[in-house]
Design a protein around this nucleic acid. Sequence first.
DNA 1: AATGCCGTTCTTGTATACACAAACGTTGAC
DNA 2: GTCAACGTTTGTGTATACAAGAACGGCATT
Lengths: 216, 216
Amino acid sequence: MSENVGRWLRDEIENAILSYEFAPGERLDETVLANRFGVSRTPVREALMQLDAIGLIEIRPRRGAIVIDPGPHRIYEMFEVMAELEGLAGSLAARRLDKASREAITATHSRCEQSAAAGDSDAYYYDNEEFHKAIYAASRSDFLQEHCVQLHRRLRPYRRLQLRVRNRLSTSFLEHCAIVDAIFTGDGDEARRLLRTHVGIQGERFSDLVASMATR
Amino acid sequence: MSENVGRWLRDEIENAILSYEFAPGERLDETVLANRFGVSRTPVREALMQLDAIGLIEIRPRRGAIVIDPGPHRIYEMFEVMAELEGLAGSLAARRLDKASREAITATHSRCEQSAAAGDSDAYYYDNEEFHKAIYAASRSDFLQEHCVQLHRRLRPYRRLQLRVRNRLSTSFLEHCAIVDAIFTGDGDEARRLLRTHVGIQGERFSDLVASMATR
DNA sequence: AATGCCGTTCTTGTATACACAAACGTTGAC
DNA sequence: GTCAACGTTTGTGTATACAAGAACGGCATT
């Protein structure tokens, strides 16, 4: 319960939004939320203001808060930026790699290998996240790392959809191998290039994404 | 007064922080702020929560809000990310350029030329900002544009310091020329490369920045 | 019957009050 | 004289009350 009701609520509502419990476009009533969580309106408002600042909801003056619906195009834009930031993280990681980061990447990478081999999509989803976070950390840039984690968080639901597609699981792992190789050999440009294409969604993968969003 | 006291306060306090009226590390007392702006504590708290979500201040539970002091290293990291995002914007702009964006870039570019020729550092500072914003817009990615504008905003005070250095003004303008050229000829990779080095701070430019920060 | 205006009601926005936690100062004891 | 403990003070965290604005529905008029 994180010390402070406002922050706890922020996380709670954020999770509810990211897990589609609060659907895009849905109106969030302060009183209803306050009753649901058993607190007064004040911390609810504080939580909503923060989510507005992050960009998850939109508070229209005197007209309440609604969950933002990014829509396919904007999600594509977000992946575009994510790909670029991950590319930067990879290129920095290749240049600045130290022993601890190397071990963290190796460890998460082999966990991905196991869940990919087992065909366990849910486990891979989680291990994949840890793998990418290990790369962010290896960039040794706190600011970049925080940005990546935050954007990753917002894209989480869509990534999950992506993994359902065809044999994306094994393809994804093969791409990881090449990425690890580039980082460990210190080839920053290659790491950047590989991560950009790994994270980005182009061509048919975009149509796949839109299709799976429509069926939600 | 933007409809809503909370948002107005957020902008007000944000400006005060970015213009160093509230120094890094300074504690922001809710009651003092409320009195200063002639409102109650509630909207002040709302504004502070938003600034915390953006990352400009840090609210430690039960210990008040303090202005975050990024410090040279973190500022360097922020410029690193900014350079990457601007590079992406430039590369997209080169690919997706349309008539309106082309005209916007041309217009802001020539305003930069005038203020650079006049040696008017303050005017150039402003025109330069508009020039970069024109490139963000030309990327035709709303998400990227918003991100760039927000980061640009946070780096604004440091950019201003940079311009004071030596004959950065004319150098900067020459770089602009090359960037415009790359974008207009559709050379996305070159635009990306040029913008990255234009925005990034390396080598002695970083020491210059640290030095001017110290004398503040 | 349809449209426009007015009033009611519901929700948001702001203020104020109260409770609780932390920090600092003072006093007493070792 | 120094350290610790207790009390006071200051400031944050939450709740509640009140005010103002927007949406919706009803009534009247065309």
